[in-house]
Each structure stands twice: as C-alpha cells, then as structure tokens.
Design a protein around this nucleic acid. Structure first.
Length: 756
DNA sequence: ATAGGGTTAG
C-alpha cells in the first residue's frame, strides 16, 4: 500500500483504518505521526495518536515510534511533551542517536540554547552506550554555540568533528565556519574554511557575512571577488550579503551597483535583498533609486500572495524609513497612514517617529509618539522608539515632555536594556538646559560607553563649564574608553566656549602625538573658533593658512563669526568672499557680514548686503524663540502680537526695560537694524522674540523657578545685554539655548562670559 | 541538517 502524500489524507486514512478495526503496527505510527507534525499546530490529533500507541503497548519498546512521537510533539510546539517521551526512553535506555538529535533540535529551535547545550553534553556521556554524535548532531548543536557565543563548547565540537572525521562533511564544515563567525572569531573561521576540501556556496556566504558582521568589510569584499573569479554560482544570499555590507558602511551607491550586477546575472532578488537595498538608499538619501526599489518591492508583494505577512511589513517599514531618510517625510507619512492601525508594528511607528525627529520635524515626531501611546491596544514603544522620541525632545529642548518620557522609562525598566535610552536621556537633559540631571543619569549608569562620556562632556561644553568637561575627558581616558576624532571635537568645543585657549591648543597638538587621532578639517575649524572667540584673529587666519587640507565652509564660518564678535571688517569680508567662492553662503553668513558692518556703523554696507541678499533670493530665516509652559509651548517671532496675552507681555516688557534703564542699560541700536527682512516693522529692539519669550516666561512661571528659552538663531547682542540686566531685577534664573550654546543669566551676569 | 533582513545615541 502506498500512503498518500498529503498529511491530511494520511490522517484520514489512519482514522478509517481504526474504525474498520485494523490494528496499526510499528510501521504505521511513524507515518501518521509525521503527518501530524506537518500540520502545524495540530498537537491534538498527534496527542490522540499517542494515546493509541500507548494502548497498543508500542510506546515501551519501539524506538522508531518513540522518535516519531518526539518529532511530532516538537513540530507541534509542545516541547514539554517531547521531552517527556524522550526522558522515558532514556530511563529505559532504548534511545538512539536520532532521539538525541531530535530533542536537541527541538531545544535549539525553541530558543533554549543553554538547554540544548546541556543535552548535547549529556549525549556525549552516553558514548559508552553506543550513542555517538553523527553529522546531524553536530549541525544541530553548532548553531546553538554560535547564537549563544559559546565558543569554548564550539571548539570542543570542532575537535570532535576533526577526530571523528565528520568535518569532511560539507554541512558540518559550513556549520563550524558559521559557528566561529557568529562567535566573531573570523580568523578561526577562515582557517577552517581554507582547509575545507569541498566548499559550496554556503561556505563562502558564511565567510562573507561573517566578515561583514564584525565590520571587516574589505575582507568580505575580497572574498566576494574571489567567488567571482573562481566562478562560484552566486545565489541570492551572496548578493544580499554584499549589498548589505555596502549599505551598513553607508555606501549606498556601491550597494546599488552590486544590485545592478545581480540583475544582470539573472539572480532573482528576494525580500532580504530588498531590505538591504532600501537601507543602502536610505543611508545616502538616494531618493530616485529608493523609489525604484519601492516599485520593485510593491510588485513582489502583490505577486507573491504566499509571503509571510511579517516579511511584507518589514519591507513596508524599510520603504517608510527610506522615504523619511531621503527627506520625503510627507511620502513616508502617506504610506504610514495607509497602513491600518492593527497592521502597524512597533518598527512602523518607530521609523516614522525617528524620520520626523531626524529631519527637523520634531514636533510631528512627538505628536506621533503621543498617538502611539494613546492607542495602546496593538503596540507599545520599545527602546528604539523611546530613543527617537528623546531625540525629538532634545531638538526642541522639550524638557517637560522629556521628563515624562524619563518617568515612562523608569516605570517600564527601559534604562538597563541598552546604552541607547540612557545616552539619549543624557543628551535630552543636556540640550534642554539641565546638565546636572544629565550628570545624575550618567552617574547611575551601570555600564557606560564612549557615547555616554562624550554626551556629558558636550553638555558641560555647551554650558560653558569647560573645566568640568575636561574632568570628564580625564575620567573617560582613565576608564579606558576609546578616544577618537569626535571626542576631540567635543574637547576643543568645550575649551572654545569657555575661553580656555591654551588648554585647547595643547589638546590639539597632543591629539595626534598622544592619541594617534589625525586632525581633520573639523578640528581645524574648532581651532579657528577657539582662537577667534578669544579675539586672536590673526592667529586664527594663520591656522587656516597652515592647514594641510582645503578649508571647508565651516572653517570660514568660524572665522566670520569671530570677526563679528570682535568687529573686524576687513577679515570678515575676506572670510565672506571665501564662502562665496565655495558657493556655501547662506542666510547665516550674510547676516553675520551685515552684523559686522552694523557693528562698525557702516550703514551703507549693511544696505548693500541687504540688496545682495534680495538679488540672490536668499532670505534671512526669521528669528524665533519658544518657552515651554504648562499648557504647551508658546512660540514668538519678532514683533509677535498673536499671543492671547500679548498685552500683558508688552506691558511687562516695557516695565522691565524702564527698570533696567535706571540701572544703566542703554539699548544698542546697532542690533535694531539687523533683522534684514523686518525693516518695515521698525525692528524695535524690545520686540525681539527672545525678549517676548522671556516676558511670557516671567508671567507664567512660579517665582524662583528657572525660565528656559530656546532660540533657533543666535541670541541678539542687545537682548543679551538686556537680559543680563533683567536677571538682576527678577527672581528667576534665565536659561537660553541659542544655535551656538547655552546662556545662564543670573544676578546680572551670564555664564558665557563673552564667549559666544 | 548549514548561510542572509528593517528601527536608536556623541
């Protein structure tokens, strides 16, 4: 009799057999149990068959039947019952290598790596009873060593494979290579790989992906080249891995080029290829190629109805992420909105929130995050989501919201899950003007990485607490943290904003000598800024002349703003001209130049810059300041009268100006003319956005509490003077974050001490 | 029986 292939029919026939009174034997049961395992999740039928087996007394003596039972329970996801049957066999000492392999595979696949390894060890001790691991055992257990990074056990298995000669088997060899690769022991993996007499495409792929995952991209790519030279049949895994390697390095165009080669070779891309490709496009902002991939993906998704819905969602998430990273948040949002609420998973929400947070739509990010919390039926935020939301808070200096998220983090025990959340919290508190709380979080972290240290150091730098920044740097070195180019940007920035010129110079000279970090253009820009802020403009210029590379726009901007601070018209004109040559001028550099002229009272030149801007179609970004109130954020532009409490605000401001004038404040009219596109409004000094925000802050906050204001541009010079005076007559510390740094105004002085 | 994938920080 030939059994039907369809598992359903198989079971049906078995039932008919029982009804007709036939007694199944030791050959029948394995067939029907296999069928039960194949019908996923149908443990019930399998359980009934188990009952029949027990009734007929076969469960005690027939190893084939028992093995089939173990397999059936394992495939039906009932690990506990599989283990029970297996243990009964062991007690009677009837189990064979297939029984062991089945139970180990069951543990590996259910994710219990440690349990699997324990079982495998016990299997080794059964050797004297004639149970010897075969190729299948090794291929079962090796991935468990890889996943659990249990490389000692992996080495033992490798040794056994060599002694038993099983390593000649290409499957075993591949599994060993992959085990070492997963344990990040690529040199071991390479040794095994090179010694393999028979290699297949899987062996090569395991090596390529291994190198790629430990960041050895050059090695991954040279293997890929060797594959092509040795005419190995590249499959979709190879191509996807190479595309992924390029994408991970941020080389999206190279990834796209490999994709083109793949298409020429006739290999059909699959879902993983698409995901790798999308992340490549996202990393370089290649919108056009991203759209192409989007079209291709839609075709795939529509054609293949058998796709796993989870896989499809991954592709859609990749597409949303790609659009968001290619600065097309609107398209991303349209796709996001088209996904039914119940289908969106946590990544769908996170890529959209993160997309907004990274591209200047931080308000939308927080709005969406709130919506996500409000629908708590389908998904909850994870550490990724929280990090993205905190990034948005940091951009907006949204301290209130940030604190709420901090509370959420504590309630839901996110703080210990990864570095990311805690590091983002540090950054959020720093950028919202509360370094001291950032410090508390830092101190409470069980593990810190270099980003934790640099984030805190950036914080002290931004707040003009240079000495403390340097102490953090010293601590970072003592903790053995890697010191890289970014670390030094932060160190130099901190020196520059605290006027620590000599120390900054010293660090600059030591970075290559003592830390082998070669100064890049960004470090030269920091030095120009450091010297410039301190008024040593000629030294700054010499620094630029002696740079080993061409100065980039940031270098000239640093010089230009130093010229504004110290009113050096000639050098300022020079810097502006250099920016113009690089075609890197923007509204900021025009404003700086116009301010330089205004400082020197050269009004004609001010007018000239203004008409130049009009001519080239560059408009000054309107200055804008905001304060967080209990009822949300209040935003002010110059001369803004749209706020419902506008009258009170202007009255209070007039009163304050009156009072500080008595203390010696003289309005600095040079700044009145700076707002190039607000000339018709008269540019009345006391209508500047930061002053309006301050007045609103005073009106709405409890006496004694600090008032925190954020401005999109640099704070205006007259406002800086006025607020310094105002801090004498009010009962609040005033903390302003502008585009350059923090200013803490208290009792008639500002923490920036002129370095801004 | 072995290989590949999407979201986060300075």
């Amino acid at each position: 009799m030939r059994l039907p292939l369809n598992p359903g029919e198989s079971i049906e026939m078995f039932v008919r057999m029982l009804r007709l009174g036939w007694e199944p034997d030791g050959y029948t049961y394995p067939f029907v149990l296999k069928a039960c395992g194949e019908i996923r999740g149908n443990g019930v039928v399998g359980f009934c068959v188990h009952g029949v087996v027990v009734k007929n007394g076969l469960g005690d003596c027939n190893v084939f039947v028992c093995n089939a039972l173990v397999m059936m329970y394992f495939k039906s996801g009932v690990l506990r019952d599989a283990r029970k049957v297996f243990d009964e066999m062991c007690e009677r000492g009837v189990e064979d290598v297939v029984s062991w392999n089945s139970i180990v595979a069951a543990y590996v696949q259910s994710g219990d790596v440690k349990g699997a390894l324990r079982l495998f060890e016990r299997m080794g001790r059964r050797g004297e009873f004639g149970v010897r691991a075969d190729a299948v055992s090794l291929v079962n257990v090796l991935p468990a060593c890889g996943v659990g990074k249990a490389w000692r056990r992996g080495k033992e298995v490798h040794g056994y494979a060599v002694r038993s000669g099983l390593c000649e088997d290409v499957f075993v060899g591949n599994a060993i290579v992959d085990m070492y690769a997963k344990c990040e022991l690529m040199d071991e993996a390479s040794k095994v790989f090179e010694r393999m007499k028979v290699k297949d495409v899987v062996s090569w792929n395991a090596m390529v992906t291994g190198y790629s995952q430990v960041g050895r991209f050059e090695d991954a790519l040279s293997l890929f080249k060797r594959m092509k030279m040795e005419k190995i049949d590249l499959n979709v895994v190879t191509w996807s891995a190479v595309i992924g390697a390029y994408a991970q390095r941020g080389l999206g165009y190279e990834a796209l080029d490999v994709f083109r080669q793949m298409q020429l070779s006739g290999s059909e891309p699959n879902i993983i290829t698409l995901l790798s490709l999308l992340s490549g496009c996202a990393s370089v902002g290649a919108l056009l190629q991203g759209k192409e991939t989007h079209c291709y993906a839609m075709k795939e998704i529509l054609n293949v109805s058998t796709n796993d819905p989870g896989d499809n969602m991954m592709v859609i998430n990749g597409i949303i992420d790609m659009y968001a990273k290619c600065k097309s948040a609107n398209i991303a949002r349209a796709i996001f909105d088209s996904i039914p609420l119940e289908d969106r998973n946590v990544v769908t929400w996170t890529v959209m929130i993160g997309g907004y947070a990274q591209h200047g739509e931080a308000n939308d990010a927080l709005q969406l995050f709130s919506e996500m919390l409000a629908q708590n039926r389908y998904v909850m935020p994870n550490a990724f989501t929280i990090s993205c939301a905190l990034m948005a808070c940091a951009r907006l200096a949204a301290l209130r919201f940030g604190r709420q998220i901090h509370a959420y983090v504590i309630r839901n025990h996110f703080e210990s899950s990864t570095f990311f959340v805690a590091n983002c919290l540090i950054d959020m508190y720093v950028k919202s003007g509360d370094v001291d709380t950032a410090r508390v979080i830092f101190d409470n972290m069980d593990n810190k990485n270099s980003i934790s240290w640099t984030s805190l150091m950036t914080g002290y730098g931004m707040h003009g607490r240079g000495e403390e920044a340097i102490r953090v740097f010293d601590g970072m070195r003592r903790a053995g943290m890697p010191i890289d180019g970014v670390t030094f940007v932060v160190v130099l920035y901190a020196c520059s904003h605290s006027g620590m010129v000599d120390q900054g110079m010293n660090y600059f000279h030591r970075m290559e000598r003592d830390y082998s970090v070669i100064p890049g253009v960004e470090h030269y820009a920091c030095m120009v800024d450091l010297l410039g802020r301190a008024g040593r403009l000629n030294e700054a210029l010499n620094f630029i002349k002696e740079m080993p590379m061409d100065p980039s726009p940031i270098v000239w901007v640093a010089l230009l703003s130093a010229c504004r601070l110290h009113t050096n018209v000639e050098l300022g004109e020079f810097a502006a001209a250099e920016l113009l040559k690089l075609e890197a001028e923007n509204d900021g550099s025009y404003t700086l130049l116009s301010n330089i002229y205004a400082n020197a009272r050269r009004w004609k030149d001010v007018a000239r810059v203004r008409s130049l801007m009009k001519y080239s179609g560059i408009r000054k970004r309107p200055g804008c300041s905001w304060v967080q109130g209990k009822k949300g954020t209040a935003t002010f532009f110059v001369g803004d009268k749209t706020h419902p409490r506008s009258h009170e605000i202007y009255d209070l401001l007039a009163d304050l100006i009156h009072r500080i004038t008595a203390l010696g404040y003289v309005p600095d009219t040079r700044f009145a003319l700076h707002d190039v596109d607000d000339e018709e409004k008269g540019g009345l000094l006391f209508e500047h956005s930061e002053k309006l925000a301050l007045a609103f802050g005073i009106l709405t906050s409890t006496p004694g509490m600090p008032i925190r204001i954020t401005k999109n541009l640099r704070v205006c010079g007259d406002c800086h003077t006025a607020i310094t005076y105002i801090s004498k007559v009010i009962d609040h510390e005033v903390i302003i974050r502008d585009s350059s740094r923090f200013h803490h105004f208290k009792n008639g002085s500002c923490s920036c001490k002129g370095y801004w």
